[in-house]
Every structure is written in structure tokens, then in C-alpha cells.
Design a protein around this nucleic acid. Structure first.
Length: 259
DNA sequence: GGGTAATGTGGAA
DNA sequence: TCCACCTTACCCA
């Protein structure tokens, strides 16, 4: 269940397994059958993540665009001879390995021009090296409404989901309901830097762990965050406050995130 | 075995 | 603001 770190990690892992390889493309579930037939036998040229969007570029000049939505996931299948489950929307296979896409919100073929249009509508992605930090800071300060809502708006910044917005705001001591226009430049800079740090760490970990731990992999999922879905703040023990911000449940520590 | 929430988004109301 | 979508995981019985 994917925020941007999952998509960036997938771009990397798919490229490692499938980059430069000729693909057998199929849609066992049937909702991508015509498109799969069109690109079956093409070579995977590159993969790219932008926000929560994944693009798989093929030698036919088609791009497969995948958005996982809330439930989508890719499963790596070590034995490509093993038939896919019937609910698999898309299988990308070589003779060595297969990747199966389950329950995506979107899976479609786009032209490169259509990809550019889509990406143009996305705000800066903290996980990309080609983003302008000062532009991101300006966009955050200029956004209408609360910072907790702006962080979920993919046209303001992209790739941030409900876990990162709550954990990053906590890390920099900003309450989710603070209006964007009230944020100082230094606050917005700290928030952007924290998003970049936290999300990059999550790409490496393959999960979101924001508590301090020597062995990050050993932290149980339910205890991996400081405020998100926590009863008490894992820094100071203060009861976590829940509210609705930007249409989703926000979590914050009233002591460390005043206002 | 059933019921529900879920790290998301877009369209209807 | 609500709801539908796609599926899984976890809780409860």
C-alpha cells in the first residue's frame, strides 16, 4: 500500500530484473488483454517513477502507466513457468522471472507525449533528483488551506501519502491544520528536507519506519511510526490527536506540534 | 466464515 | 462530502 517510496522502489526493482530484456506480456485477468497483445515481445527500455505513478517504457515507444491506488501491488514471481493467479491484471515475464500486477487503480498504455502531459500536472517529487527545492518550498507556502491537505494534493507535491504527511509534519513540529500561508520559509524548507530524508530512507528500507531503531527491519509494523495510527506519541507519550484534514485522518502530537 | 479498514483517486451529489 | 473501485489483511466469531 503504496506511497511514493513503493513506486520508486518498484521502478528500481523492475529495471533490475527486466531492463533490456524482451518481455512476454499478458493479462490473465483480461482487462489489459488487447494492450498486452500489442506490446508482447517488446524490450523494456526503462522504468520511471514520478510521485505515485510508475512508467514502463518499451521498445515500441509505448509506455505502460500504472497507478496502484489503495490496493494495487506488484508481486515478484521467481518461477515464471508458474501460471499467474486469475486476478493478475498484467504479467511482465522473461524466461528468468515474472512480475504480476494485482488490483491497480490504473493500468494503461500511453504515448510519451501523454506521459509528459500527466507528469506536468504533478508537483515536485521529494524522491526525484531533478526537483527544485526552492520551487517546492514556494509551492507549499502558496497552497490554499492547511498544510496537511497540501501535502496530500499531488499537484502541490507528489508521492506523499497519509503516512508521510503525518510523520513528516510531526518530525518538524508543525500541526496538520496550520494554514500554508502561515508557514515561514524556514519551516517549509525543514518540511521539504524532512520529506526527502524520510522518503529516501523508506525506499531503502522497503517500508516506512520513522521511529529510531538500531535494527530497522526488526521493528514491528504497528510500532514503526511516531504518530500515525498510534495511541501515544512515541517521542513524548502524549496522547495522539486524530482529526480530518484534506479528507483523510490526520494524527498529531499536540505537545510537539502546537497550533 | 463474515465484516471492515486501508499507505488513493476521481466523479457524482 | 460521499461513494465506488480494485483486493488483501486483519479482526472477530
Amino acid at each position: 500500500m503504496p506511497e511514493g517510496h513503493v513506486v520508486h522502489r518498484l521502478a528500481r526493482d523492475l529495471a533490475a530484473d527486466l531492463g533490456g530484456r524482451r518481455l512476454t506480456v499478458s493479462s490473465p485477468q483480461g482487462r489489459f488483454t488487447a494492450e498486452a497483445a500489442r506490446v508482447d515481445g517488446t524490450v523494456l527500455r526503462h522504468t520511471e517513477a514520478y510521485g505515485k505513478h510508475l512508467f514502463v517504457g518499451l521498445s515500441s515507444d509505448d509506455e505502460i502507466h500504472v497507478h496502484l491506488g489503495m490496493q494495487g501491488k506488484w508481486l515478484r514471481v521467481a518461477d515464471p513457468a508458474r501460471p499467474a493467479l486469475p486476478q493478475v491484471r498484467l504479467r511482465l515475464a522473461t524466461e528468468a522471472v515474472a512480475w504480476d500486477l494485482i488490483a491497480p487503480a490504473r493500468c494503461e498504455l500511453l504515448t510519451e507525449a501523454a506521459v509528459e502531459d500527466l507528469v506536468r500536472g504533478l508537483g515536485p517529487d521529494p524522491l526525484r533528483s531533478d526537483t527544485d527545492a526552492e520551487a517546492a518550498v514556494a509551492a507549499l507556502r502558496a497552497a490554499p488551506g492547511a498544510i496537511g491537505a497540501a501535502l496530500l494534493d499531488q499537484s502541490v507535491v507528489s508521492g506523499v501519502g497519509n503516512v508521510f504527511r503525518n510523520e513528516a509534519l510531526h518530525a518538524v513540529g508543525i500541526a496538520p491544520k496550520r494554514p500554508c500561508r502561515e508557514l515561514s520559509t524556514s519551516e517549509a524548507r525543514a518540511l521539504w528536507a524532512e520529506l526527502r530524508r524520510m522518503m529516501a530512507q523508506a525506499v531503502e528500507d522497503g517500508r516506512i519506519v520513522t521511529v529510531d531503531a538500531t535494527d530497522r527491519a526488526a521493528v514491528p509494523e504497528a510500532e514503526a511510526r511516531k504518530v500515525y495510527k498510534q495511541q501515544r506519541c512515541r517521542d513524548c507519550g502524549t496522547p495522539v490527536v486524530t482529526s480530518t484534514v484534506g479528507g483523510r485522518t490526520a494524527y498529531h502530537c499536540p505537545r510537539e506540534q502546537p497550533g
